[in-house]
């Protein structure tokens, strides 16, 4: 479904990704792991169109994405939940959710979709009129995910969703990812919590210094202490 081939990315003169290859099949959860600074976030950003200089090929359902602006990639069915969550200050929870539908074909069904989303995210349902940035980190992360999902994307990319969040909420969140998979949503997940991520993933890629150094099924990688030690230990 998503096919990344020979992807290079630069920040200024720094060559951050050096020929990354990743395949994500329809309905899969694929996990990208590696140390801080290995190139995980840059990979997701490059797929979404947020890195100025990229070469290689990124196709989504056969369509080449490189060269398309980010907002066009959204319309292909791609969603991205950035690490910093980027909840918009000054807006309440409902308006942050509405943002997720502004450009969507489903905009006319706004009320209905917000109600549906509130059912999936009960923590948000209670807080629809609250200023979003006054919520806890975990609740903000839920909101960022809900905002990305409300337009029913085909593939969701999540960057470090568990970072800085209470364990109870993390479990709730990963349960949700499993549900999403059950509903046919494809997920590309970047996660520091390797064990947790491999627990729900089908396959995993290990990235180091801008290159994919290893790929395996999640189960095999979970059992491979050496690889985990070598590339993922902090």
């Amino acid at each position: 479904m998503l096919s990344i081939k020979g992807l290079n990315a630069w920040y200024g003169s720094s060559h951050v990704l050096q020929g990354v290859d990743i395949e994500v099949g329809e309905g899969e959860i694929v996990c990208l792991i590696g140390r801080n600074g290995a190139g995980k976030t840059t990979t997701l950003k490059s797929v979404m169109g947020l890195v100025d200089k990229t070469t290689g090929s990124v196709t989504f359902e056969g369509k080449e994405l490189l060269g398309e602006p980010a907002h066009v990639r959204f319309h292909h069915g791609l969603a991205y939940v950035p690490e910093e969550r980027r909840i918009v200050a000054g807006l309440d929870v409902r308006d942050n959710l509405r943002l997720g539908l502004l450009a969507s074909r489903d905009k006319a069904r706004e009320k209905e979709l917000i109600a549906e989303t509130a059912k999936i995210f009960p923590r948000l349902a209670e807080r629809l009129d609250q200023t979003a940035i006054t919520m806890s980190g975990g609740e903000q992360q839920m909101l960022a995910i809900a905002r990305a999902l409300i337009s029913s994307p085909r593939l969701v990319m999540l960057d470090e969703p568990s970072e800085g969040i209470m364990p109870v909420l993390v479990d709730e969140m990963f349960e949700l990812f499993r549900d999403l998979k059950g509903r046919g949503v494809t997920i590309l997940l970047v996660e520091q919590n390797v064990e947790l991520a491999l627990g729900i993933a089908d396959r995993a890629y290990v990235i180091d210094q801008g290159e994919i150094v290893h790929q395996a099924t999640a189960a095999a990688l979970l059992a491979d202490a050496e690889i985990q030690e070598r590339y993922c230990a902090v």
Binding site: A70, H71, P82, V88, A89, G90, L99, A103, S104, S151
Partner: peptide
């Protein structure tokens, strides 16, 4: 406040 997230959410 955040043009990038608005782009990611499909707005030109």
């Amino acid at each position: 406040r955040d043009p990038q997230i608005v782009r990611v959410l499909g707005v030109d």
